[in-house]
Design a binder for these strands. Sequence first.
DNA 1: GGATTTATGTTGTTATAGCAACTATATACC
DNA 2: GGTATATAGTTGCTATAACAACATAAATCC
Lengths: 144, 144
Amino acid sequence: MKLTFQDYISIKIHKTDLNLTRFVKAKLEPFNLAPEQNLIMMLLWEKDGLSQNQLVETLNKDKTNIARMAASLEKKGFIKRYNCDKDRRSVRLYLTDTGRNLGNEVIPIAEEFDAIVCNGISKEELKQMEKILRKMNQNVEKLL
Amino acid sequence: MKLTFQDYISIKIHKTDLNLTRFVKAKLEPFNLAPEQNLIMMLLWEKDGLSQNQLVETLNKDKTNIARMAASLEKKGFIKRYNCDKDRRSVRLYLTDTGRNLGNEVIPIAEEFDAIVCNGISKEELKQMEKILRKMNQNVEKLL
DNA sequence: GGATTTATGTTGTTATAGCAACTATATACC
DNA sequence: GGTATATAGTTGCTATAACAACATAAATCC
């Protein structure tokens, strides 16, 4: 087959991901919010009181990552963690007032970021790209 | 604008990247080679004796990451690091025999991985995707 | 040719990312 | 209803990612 380094689509995706993350990291820095922490906040702004396990499934990350990010967000005062009454194993995350207010500032920045990333790319092209990404995920997931 | 979590293309790219990395990590584990370390090895298999700084530019990573991955690869016995005679600041990486031989086993696995990822995706679609990824990189790079 | 600037790497710190092993609780099984 | 199993989180470890501050060597500038 003889592929060279530049041929691998996975490497191109990886580099792009790092570039986008670096960019959004700088955008969020003034708010004392790291990129992945922001993903948790975005989900909580949509629906408060999610459990860590729900975040594990939505974000498709290891539970240890979620636990540590949640601990960090609590330390920063953006959320509070409470044990669920119905299931004592489960930990639910609730926004503090500070955390809720943060959304008013950060959500516009996230949307502006998306607009910058998608600049000059048509809706059709985006749909196409999403389809291919889905296919790639399926390709590896069925073998995991 | 009102975007929800699932609307962000950056998040989809990020998740896919993590999925692909997780997959390749498992594939490389038997060889005591981590995914990013493998990227350095792939470049050395193509051209031995690259400097850390050349890797910084090719891999588009911070020099600290490259330095630490190179240190790790040296510790594993896959490469040797020598100071360049012409430029005493520069550190060049050279494959050991072990490192060179590793390529015979790992390169086929990398190519198989690429084939798995691209399964059911046409050459046209891949080209299209690469074009969009390039555009996204440009979109953020010009603002960094 | 000596001072300033630039380039290359290293050390220290914080934030992801995932695996293994563990605790505690809940569910299933008989 | 007591045992086995499954689920939700935590702790410890390694690898990646980027930034700041630093050391050293090279290049530039006058």
